[in-house]
C-alpha cells in the first residue's frame, strides 16, 4: 500500500476504531445490524490492540472510547469505561503468559474475552442502571463474533504486515 511507508499499523487501527465507534453509536434505519456488527468489531479491536500493541497511550484511548460508549449508548457513566480500563490493566498483567500460547489458543482466548466483556458490560448495565439483560441481543453478539472472528483476524494480520 502506498500509505504504508508513512503510517504505522497502530494509526490504521485507530482510524478503524474511530469509524467503528461512530457506526456503533448512531442508528442506521433499515440496516440496524450494522450497529451490532460495529460494536462487536470494536470490542475485537480493543482486545487485539491491548494484546499486540500495548502502550501507555492505550489507557487514554480506552478511557475516551469507554466514556463515549457509556454516554452515547446508556447516557450514564460506568460499564464500558470500567470494563475497558480493567481489561487493559489485566492484559498488561497477564501479557507475559500470552507468548507461550499458540496462535489458535490466542484466537480462542480473544474470542472468549470478547464474549466475557460484552456479558459483563450488559450485566453491569443491568445491575447499576436497570436495563434488563437482553439475551436475544447477547445471542446476536455471540453469533456475529463467531462468524466474523476469522475474517477479522485475517484482516488484522494483513494490517500488521504493513509496517
Amino acid at each position: 500500500m502506498l500509505l504504508s511507508r508513512y503510517l504505522p499499523p497502530f494509526t490504521y487501527y485507530n482510524l478503524i476504531l474511530i469509524i467503528l465507534f461512530f457506526l456503533s453509536v448512531s442508528s442506521i434505519e433499515s440496516f440496524s445490524i450494522i450497529n451490532s456488527i460495529s460494536y462487536v468489531f470494536l470490542h475485537f479491536l480493543i482486545i487485539y490492540l491491548g494484546i499486540y500493541y500495548y502502550r501507555r497511550s492505550l489507557y487514554s484511548i480506552y478511557f475516551l472510547y469507554g466514556l463515549g460508549f457509556d454516554i452515547l449508548l446508556i447516557n450514564q457513566i460506568g460499564p464500558h469505561l470500567f470494563i475497558f480500563m480493567t481489561l487493559l490493566f489485566f492484559i498488561n498483567l497477564s501479557k507475559k503468559y500470552f507468548i507461550y500460547l499458540s496462535s489458535l489458543r490466542i484466537y480462542l482466548l480473544i474470542l472468549f474475552i470478547l464474549l466475557l466483556i460484552i456479558l459483563l458490560e450488559m450485566l453491569l448495565t443491568n445491575f447499576f442502571f436497570d436495563y434488563d439483560f437482553n439475551l436475544d441481543k447477547y445471542l446476536i453478539f455471540i453469533f456475529i463474533s463467531i462468524i466474523s472472528s476469522y475474517p477479522i483476524f485475517f484482516i488484522f494480520s494483513k494490517i500488521d504486515k504493513l509496517q
Partner: peptide, 9 residues
Amino acid sequence: TSQSPDIYA
C-alpha cells in the same frame, strides 16, 4: 440529528 441503536438506552 441521530438515534441511538437499540443496544441499551
